[in-house]
Amino acid sequence: MESSDNVYSLYKCRLLRVYSLTDEEKLFLLRFEDSDIAESWSFIPGQFVQVALPGVGEVPISICSSPMRRGFFELCIKKVGKVTSMIHKLQPGDCVGIRGPYGNGFPMDEFEHSDILLIAAGIGMVPLRSVFMYAVDNRWKFGNITVINSARYGDKLLFRKELEAMRDIAEAENIKIIQTVTRDPEWPGRVGRAQEHIKDANTDPKNSCVAVCGPPQAYRSIFEKLIEAGYDPNKIYVTLERRMKCGVGKCGHCIAGSSTFLKYICIDGPVFGYYDIISTPGLI
């Protein structure tokens, strides 16, 4: 884990805390072992890292913490396959290999001086939590903020407790947190899909940047609702996922798009603008 001129080199990170968010998702707090890396490593919300377990493999995972905290970062990992199942077995003190950060991330500079509307469905909350935490850490750079967090069931809402616990700070800071579920009869709060709550956001459609993350099938109807509500299509961003092996635009697994707009999601994305999405068959 030394030669930094090799783009595939991994850096050792120690797990400091492992916390179960739902029955499938765990939140991991990590720190770089090498102090120089810890000192210099930074990322943009919306970027991802490759997480490696020797002998098992590597997986791309979105960073879900704010880049303001140096040397530490958080990953929310859903247990779905071979590597993520092994990661779920790790305990505080164990190590993993990390390389990255990769991808373009959200254009946070463009978000400045605007209101921010974040729309998450299911695991889509993971990259958007990074945007949200970054915006909270730099509160004075942004206007009103709304987070819409949605899932099928209440106990599947990622970061539900954390968002609930932020109620006071949210009120004081012009932040609106909306958590909604689609299929849970037991849920005492809001119901319906994320896009049905856009009208309740505290953001001004004429001066807002929107970040959306969720299952791609949901994107078209979210776009419709946003444009109907007057949001500027030029300021709507989504983040996509694909199978990725390299993260550096080579292995080809994440290639998507069409013959006029062929993209490696890992380096040209994963964040794309509204017009890229609607003019490129195959992207969502």
Partner: peptide, 26 residues
Amino acid sequence: GLVAGGHNFRETKKDRFINRYVCKNA
């Protein structure tokens, strides 16, 4: 195009077939 959890970004032979034509002609 297969990812953990079973989703395949190029599910059918036709998807994969077209993918090559698209990629090569990009």
